[in-house]
Amino acid sequence: MLTTLALLMSLTAGAEIAATSTEDVDVELVLAVDVSGSMDLEEAEVQRAGYVEALRHPEFVDAVRDGLTGRIAISYFEWAGTIRDNSYISWRIISGPEDASAFAALLEARPIATRRGTSISGAIAYGAKLFDASPYSGMRRVIDISGDGPNNFGAPVTPARDAATALGIIINGLAIMIRPSAAYGSLDDYYSNCVIGGPGAFVLPVQEPEDFSVAIRRKLILEVSGAEPPTRVVSAAGQPADCMMGEKLRPGYMERYYPELDR
């Protein structure tokens, strides 16, 4: 309980100096993309291409235009054991194909590199704070997290999730299962039990490289439209998962010092 309260206070710190909202949008969407070391170069390239293609797809643009205001605010960052501020792409408005293509171009131009550690809790906390700096007012606030493994660095994931959802933030997940590890079982069940949260939250699994762009587009359309996701993509009724499995699989990991994670 104290951990959850501390995280909640951390997420709300600085809210009093947040930017004043000046424009209404249907959703404020944060894309939090995994670049941890367990993502090999092929997976990282497929993931990047999937986001670029999905953002440029006419179905995504149509979903944006069909909203009440016809526009969304979107931002992006990459995470591993820690988060580098230079991976952050600040808030942009998307209201049509030109805006969507321009944002996709920013992602496409970024170098692809992976880093050590997997801190989903850190990604949630970082993403939650971005809403304080948003100059937009969304009817919904969503953090969209992609990842290919359980939390194994930093704070436990469930208190971070609970602190964010207490602020009215929805957390959805994309469970990357292209090269699944038998050590931690079904990653979509882990995401369902431990990561996602908020009204209508869902997780989509990706099991084949060729399914990546379709899954990302499908997820973005659901998030933009606010539509109820089909039952088959909601894993709330999945198998129970140990939300500390990542930490348990790395004995001594939390006590050792990894200076490269701090760079």
Rank of each mutant, 00 (worst) to 15 (best):
A123S: 15
A160M: 04
F153S: 09
G173K: 00
P156T: 06
P111I: 12
L106T: 08
G147C: 05
P111F: 03
A163N: 09
S121H: 05
I169L: 11
I145G: 01
G149K: 04
F153V: 11
Y126F: 13
T118W: 07
A102M: 02
P135E: 07
D148T: 15
G149Y: 10
G117Q: 03
G127W: 03
A100M: 11
G154Y: 02
G147F: 01
I143E: 02
L107H: 11
G173I: 05
L174I: 15
A102G: 07
N172M: 09
A104T: 06
G168S: 10
S137P: 00
A109W: 02
A160F: 02
I124P: 04
R161F: 04
I112K: 07
K129R: 15
D132H: 14
A155L: 13
R140M: 00
L130S: 02
L130V: 00
F131C: 03
F153Q: 15
P150D: 03
P150H: 00
D162S: 13
P135Q: 07
V157F: 11
I124A: 12
F103V: 03
G122K: 07
A163M: 11
I120P: 11
I112V: 15
R110E: 08
R115S: 04
I171W: 10
P135L: 09
A166T: 09
I120Y: 08
N172C: 11
L106G: 00
Y136T: 10
T118F: 09
D132E: 14
F153H: 10
R140L: 01
T118P: 03
A105F: 07
T114W: 02
A128R: 01
T158Q: 14
P111D: 12
L174G: 03
E108W: 08
D148L: 13
A163Y: 09
F153C: 02
P150Y: 04
G147Q: 05
A123F: 11
A104W: 07
R110Q: 06
S134N: 04
